[in-house]
Design a protein around this nucleic acid. Structure first.
Length: 425
RNA sequence: GGAGAGAUGGCCGAGCGGUCGAAGGCGCACGCUUGGAAAGCGUGUGUAUCGCAAGGUACCGGGGGUUCGAAUCCCCCUCUCUCCGCCA
């Protein structure tokens, strides 16, 4: 959520930002509701003041007639207050609803564009493999080598689920541990987080847990949901708290399962492990002071690059365009790995994403710190994928395949897997 | 899941329907004292929101209600603790 006063005072900039993101939000309505709300607050507060004064007069002993008069006056005030309070609560509800649709401001350098193809490539790393044979995709490889079973998962759990088997299991655990070691080296506290979170936390992070469009699984009658990422549970960690400013930055890494409904998601790029209802992920999260956020964003991106370049996975980095930023994000970088099995001749597929969400999430979650000037301010919150295991597995399987259908293991990972090649049995 | 107890400021802990934004203590900050420190003494010390300001309003786990007036009474919910049951 943006600061309402900010929206009012910067209406034109806010509207431009909404347009740049190709969203439709009625900014004027937000301001109108905000103004109305403030008028009502003044009225209510004035009446309450009278009510309190009236009640105070009745403290001591007094004539019955006089007391009766005051009681009547109090009753009248009570009714007046109730009337305005009713309008106020309606306005407040609508204001909150409308205001939460307003996206975060975008970084001035974020490329302006509508969809992912407008993202700006800013870097490439590693060499796209040149095979002397027709590259197979991970589905074919995984079936051949008995590593992934989609068909049985479809029977047992539904489409877009999978069983990982044999070496793929070890590979997933190895990658997970590799990423955890890497983020620990960079000062992140490793955590294993709950896979379920309350709706209010989801909303605070900027997810919409309800509705057909929602990518979130809700758990009936509990007010909770399955998390789509540990960003939710890490971000909610300090909800409604004031963090000691000496404790900042707080750097945490969460290992969790991730559940996504992916309603309506289909097409050739959703095949296999690429877009599934459940996967596991190691996520980085930083709470920091505003002035440090840009630097930490670069740091997170650097760690992501370090993880994938050390695994010899070719990738490129894109600066996400305004239309492709999530509503809470001020700026976002994605790492896209080369996936030889994608499309006809291979293609880039997103493997990590890191966002600087400034104070957008902190405002609704109530996460603050006491600044040097003695005032409480919202912290800035950043998140980034250390490793999304299912997609990392795609990248390894497809980039490290050999002509005979085996899969080599990246050198740095061999100490973690205990084997250096996956061969047909 | 069953039975009971509890939830008050950074922490501990009082609190009779009006004098309670809330005693007292600890902690913290500043000052005095000291060669310096400790002790001692004094002063101060929550958050949010509206307002140019003066100031107002709200908040005693959360939500409703009773009342002229609620931290205090009533109802619902959540969480914590103890005991029992079940269980990886």
């Amino acid at each position: 959520m943006l600061d309402l006063k900010y929206i009012k005072e910067n209406a034109e900039a806010v509207k431009k930002n909404v347009a740049d993101r190709f969203m439709t939000v009625d900014v004027d309505r937000v301001i109108e509701l905000y103004d109305r709300r403030n008028v009502l607050i003044s009225e209510i507060d004035g009446l309450r003041q009278k009510r309190n004064e009236n009640a105070k007069k009745m403290k001591g002993p007094m004539e019955q007639a006089e007391r009766q008069k005051l009681i009547e006056e109090g009753k009248k005030l009570k009714e007046d207050i109730a009337k305005i309070e009713e309008e106020f609560s309606g306005v407040e509800t609508e204001l909150k609803e409308e205001a939460s649709k307003v996206p975060n401001m975008a970084h001035p350098d974020a490329p302006i564009g509508k969809e992912d193809k407008d993202n700006l490539e800013i870097k490439r790393s590693g060499k796209v493999p040149a095979f002397g044979f027709k590259a197979r995709d991970h589905i074919e490889l995984g079936t051949e080598l008995d590593l992934i079973d989609f068909d049985t998962a479809a029977k047992v759990s539904g489409a877009k689920f999978y069983y990982l088997k044999n070496e793929a299991v070890i590979l997933e655990m190895a990658l997970s541990r590799y990423a955890v070691d890497m983020v620990m080296k960079h000062g992140f506290t490793p955590t294993i987080t709950p896979d379920i979170a309350k709706e209010e936390i989801l909303e605070g992070i900027g997810f919409n847990p309800r509705g057909d469009e929602s990518n979130i699984y809700s758990i009936e009658d509990t007010g909770t949901c399955l998390v789509g990422t540990a960003e939710i549970t890490l971000g909610g960690y300090f909800a409604n708290q004031i963090i000691n400013s000496e404790e900042l930055p707080v750097k945490m890494a969460g290992i969790s399962h991730c559940f996504r409904r992916e309603a309506g998601a289909a097409g050739q790029y959703s095949k296999g492990l690429y877009r599934v209802h459940q996967f596991s992920k190691v996520e980085m999260f930083i709470f920091c002071k505003p002035k440090d956020a840009d630097d930490f964003h670069e740091e997170i991106r650097g760690i992501e690059e370090e993880i994938f370049s050390s695994l010899d996975i070719p990738f490129r980095v894109v600066d996400t365009c305004t239309g492709d930023l999530g509503a809470p994000a001020y700026r976002k970088y994605d790492l896209e790995a080369w996936m030889p099995g994608r499309g006809d001749n291979g293609g880039w597929g997103e493997i990590t994403s890191t966002s600087n969400c400034t104070d957008y999430q902190a405002r609704r979650l109530g996460i603050r710190f006491k600044d040097d000037d003695g005032k409480n301010k919202h912290v800035y919150m950043l998140n980034g994928t250390a490793i999304a295991l299912s997609r990392a597995i795609i990248a390894i399987m497809e980039n490290f395949q050999t002509e005979d259908g085996s899969i080599r293991i990246p050198e740095k990972l061999v100490p973690y897997t205990g084997f250096d090649i996956i061969k047909k049995k």
